[in-house]
Simulated assay, not measured.
Amino acid sequence: MSYQHLSLAERHYIEMSRKKGVSRNQIAKDLGRSQSTISREILRNTGLRGYRHKQANRFTVDRHA
């Protein structure tokens, strides 16, 4: 089983979908990802001002460094 990190474009889609009130389950279906992947992404990368795709990407890069 291979794992691919979420791309910046996918993170942007998550941000826009969350602002529209789309459920995590629907976001996962739209991106072809598991619901747990989306839940973990949002949980790990939400800052004080909510989930923002560029900030989420920066958090991820910092954790991997």
Rank of each mutant, 00 (worst) to 15 (best):
E10V: 01
T60D: 01
Q4D: 09
N57L: 07
S39Q: 12
T60M: 04
S17W: 00
S2K: 14
S23C: 11
I27K: 01
I27Q: 02
R33C: 03
A9G: 04
I42L: 10
Q35A: 14
N57V: 00
Q35V: 10
R40W: 04
N45S: 15
S34N: 14
S23N: 10
T37G: 05
R58K: 11
S34F: 12
R33F: 09
Y51F: 15
R24F: 11
H5Y: 06
N45V: 00
G32Y: 05
R44P: 12
Q55K: 09
K29G: 02
D62K: 09
R24G: 13
N45R: 00
K54A: 00
K19Q: 12
Q35M: 12
G47T: 13
H5A: 13
H5F: 05
R44V: 04
A65H: 13
S17C: 03
R18E: 02
S39A: 13
V61E: 03
K19S: 02
R63M: 15
N57R: 10
L6M: 15
K19F: 07
H5I: 02
S17M: 03
G50W: 04
S39M: 12
A28Q: 08
G50E: 13
I14Y: 01
H53S: 09
H64P: 02
G32S: 09
I38L: 05
I42T: 09
G21V: 05
R33M: 04
L6G: 07
S7M: 05
Y13G: 03
V61M: 04
M16Q: 14
N25T: 13
L48W: 15
G21A: 09
R49G: 10
G47I: 14
K29A: 12
R11P: 02
N25L: 11
S36Q: 12
S34A: 07
E41I: 01
S23R: 05
L31G: 09
E15S: 05
Q35E: 12
R44D: 15
Y13E: 08
V22F: 04
S36M: 07
S36L: 11
R44Y: 12
